[in-house]
Amino acid sequence: MSETVHAEPPLIAGAAVRMEEDGRPTLIGSECADCATRIFPPTALCPECMGEEMSPVPLGRSGRLYSYCTVHVAPRGWSVPYIAGYVDLPEGVRVFTHVVDAAERQLSMEMEVELTTAILGTDGDGEAFSSYAFRPRQPVSDDA
């Protein structure tokens, strides 16, 4: 995709993702001050101990792909096909994500993936939206 001067498409992940000054995204979870439970996406209440002192905690930018599959049929708005996946982060948090910059045949279970952002679809007005996504940490070969 070519560079454009337009603003980045809006992120749909709300408080769950923060864009850093260097343009890189960070996933934000929350951590309970009372019992140290970490959770993603962030919540105001700890589901373990009902503590309300939840502070935002940045999560690691890379993790392991627990599972994935190519989605061919999805509700209107999503650009299909896309690859859905679960990524396990070092903090003990599993994140649902889109996996980008690879075809399904280039992925494998427990593969190392890293955080990025991607345009994932268009809203009801035809405007593109984006969110966090993960991609293989090592370059993938085209002939895999």
Binding site: C69, V73, P75, A84, H98, M109, L120
Partner: peptide, 28 residues
């Protein structure tokens, strides 16, 4: 199409569908 899911759910809002959820179970 796929079953309409609760849009307030974070994963549904990020493109989770029931076939995708079971598909990931199957793949694993």
């Amino acid at each position: 199409g796929t079953l309409p899911l609760e849009r307030e759910d974070f994963e549904v809002a990020h493109g989770m569908t029931m076939p995708a959820l079971y598909g990931m179970r199957a793949k694993r």
